[in-house]
Design a protein around this nucleic acid. Structure first.
Lengths: 345, 345
DNA sequence: ATTAAAAATACAACCGATTTCATAAAAAAG
DNA sequence: CTTTTTTATGAAATCGGTTGTATTTTTAAT
């Protein structure tokens, strides 16, 4: 155990005060260039490493930004995190990441843990069933910025970054209707999650617009829409009479799995059933037929959310964040073979 | 700005010393139960929050574990991180994550940043081209454990968690040979990355075992093997004369993309060309034909790496880590249609 | 040359919990 | 009812930068 080199050691060695050393190392303008140089040289000579704990204690900032994701095992979340990491790292912030695993209790625990470890800001995509948002109160009370992304909260106080899920789902559903679909099944996750409940709305709006009656039993809600769910979904669809002619799945991996099981049951896509997914994941481009989907800008979402958070941290006087309630990113329908009953116009 | 509640406030309010408060809050046995209760009650009454900066300063530990990944935008890495997060979170550690983006310089910068932010341990999957490992010296010097995972370092000092890439590739190649393939193309990433250079070895060993001559031009090395690379790879393959009859791609997403382009060019899989991927990603199960692949236990790798790190942190006296050079996880070939030229035996 | 203004450096308090060592209180032993 | 042992609490130093204020040094102005 070698003893740690401190600014006091440097100061003593150079016959200056610790104050000057501290200021020099932080590039404070009130220190002469010559002195700075001397101090920098001595510091690197001695192998000095700043003790960030002491600095944090005094400055009351950790330079850490917390991110809570529903699950790390998600293409979309991985993209978001990549965008966040890039921006944070460029601005000199570290990312502290934890996952709620769709459990409200774990989300609360994670939030507390982030608060106790004194992150400078928090980015969070809500777990399903997180209707009570009291666990963020400590952050607001202390003025620590919290930004929701993707699965945002519908309260007035919060700032959120997301896409227009209602519109996206409406466009997707509308596209299926235009392709001649009359009975469209919509598969989604728990409506406790904002993105799903909004997409359901969009689906309904599209139907209403075209005077197609909304049928409850055409909506399949599962707690987890993923690869495994495909079999169950298709078996449910096959029991419907008459058979639906359109399928809008809120997630590409699940859509691809449905496609697979539909094919296994002799149902042709798009001829018998047109299919639209969501997210524009790689899988949507590599299955056969390629899946029509909504392009969902995960990486950009991460960048935007992080940029906003950091802007706010660096200029706390601007009231941007408080006044910004919602940032909506552009999303778009990407039409591929899986939905084309009619020739492309 | 409300002033922060400290243990001094609690102490003053109760007429005890800060020492006792500190001990009580840490559940020290030398404090009477009655006193503890009194202190806990006062603490929650006042809304006390421990100042972790001060605690860190004194205890010289951050309770943070750093993870450096080549890229967050990766199914595999996401799985690994999920495993790590679960174990870390259960043990009360936070995860600080950054990505090197396959750049050696950024890896060095990230490593420094992790060191300066005083993580208690470091987990890292090396960026390609990271032959020089001096940037980890400060960690070793200070006794901060570093564990490599997946893309490990081949030095004596380091501990690594990975699969047996040589053997896996050998089994995969051998499987293709047994299916009757005579000319097998191997697609891999930069051989500067341990996993790829090892798989290339395995590929060669399998050929040698079966007395098939190794041909340099059957090996396609790309800096990034991903979806986009498929087109280029297939075009290169089509130029080969005679046409190969087997294809072993070191990554499922890329394999799926190759499959796509092969089909577009009228090449039947597996009849004309048998295909094996790597990673057992979801995509390998949903394309047609389903892709034979190596199951790669990402989540478990994350768990194992993190467990080992934490064990070491909690029992630094045991010399487990120093003496453990390498932990190898089980991997296996999963045979699906894409490689079955012969009927399954 | 003298004074005013500006620039550079130093002093000392502070951030808030932890911990060693000493001391007081309570319990056990004689 | 002492004396010894055990248990519980406290005083004060410490971790290592940061920062408001004071002081010294340097430069500019008169």
């Amino acid at each position: 155990m070698e003893k740690e080199i401190t600014i006091y050691d440097i100061a003593k060695g150079l016959g200056v005060s610790p104050t000057t050393v501290s200021r020099a190392l932080n590039n404070h303008p009130a220190v002469k260039e010559k002195t700075k140089k001397k101090i920098f040289d001595a510091a690197s000579e001695l192998g000095y490493q700043s003790n960030i704990f002491a600095a944090n204690l005094r400055s009351k900032r950790s330079n850490n930004i917390g991110v809570i994701v529903p699950s790390l095992k998600s293409n979309f979340q991985a993209s978001v995190l990549a965008g966040m990491e890039k921006v944070a790292s460029e601005a000199g912030f570290n990312l502290v990441i934890s996952q709620s695993l769709e459990s409200s209790e774990k989300e609360i625990a994670n939030t507390k843990s982030m608060f106790n470890s004194r992150v400078d800001g928090l980015l969070i995509s809500l777990a399903s069933g997180a209707e009570n948002l009291e666990h963020f109160a400590p952050f607001y009370k202390r003025g620590i910025p919290v930004i929701f992304y993707d699965r945002i909260a519908n309260t007035d106080i919060s700032t959120g970054v997301s896409i227009d899920n209602i519109q996206s789902a409406q466009i997707a559903t509308n596209h299926l209707i235009e392709q001649g679909c009359k009975r469209i099944v919509h598969v989604l996750g728990s409506t406790e999650v904002s993105v799903y409940s909004e997409r359901l709305k969009g689906y309904k709006y599209a139907l209403i617009d075209k005077n197609i009656p909304f049928e409850d039993n055409l909506v399949i809600i599962l707690s987890d829409i993923n690869e495994e769910a495909g079999e169950e979904i298709v078996s449910q669809i096959l029991k419907m009479n008459p058979l639906p002619d359109g399928l809008f799945v809120s997630n590409d991996a699940c859509a691809a799995s449905c496609l697979n099981h539909l094919k296994m049951n002799g149902i042709r896509v798009p001829q018998d059933m047109a299919l639209v997914g969501f997210n524009n994941e790689i899988i949507s481009r590599l299955v056969e037929p390629k899946i029509t989907t909504i392009n969902y800008p995960g990486y950009e979402m991460g960048e935007v959310a992080m940029k906003n958070l950091i802007n706010h941290l660096e200029e706390p006087d601007t009231t941007t964040l408080q006044n910004t309630n919602k940032i909506t990113l552009r999303s778009e329908l990407i039409i591929r073979e899986s939905s084309l009953k009619k020739p492309k116009t």
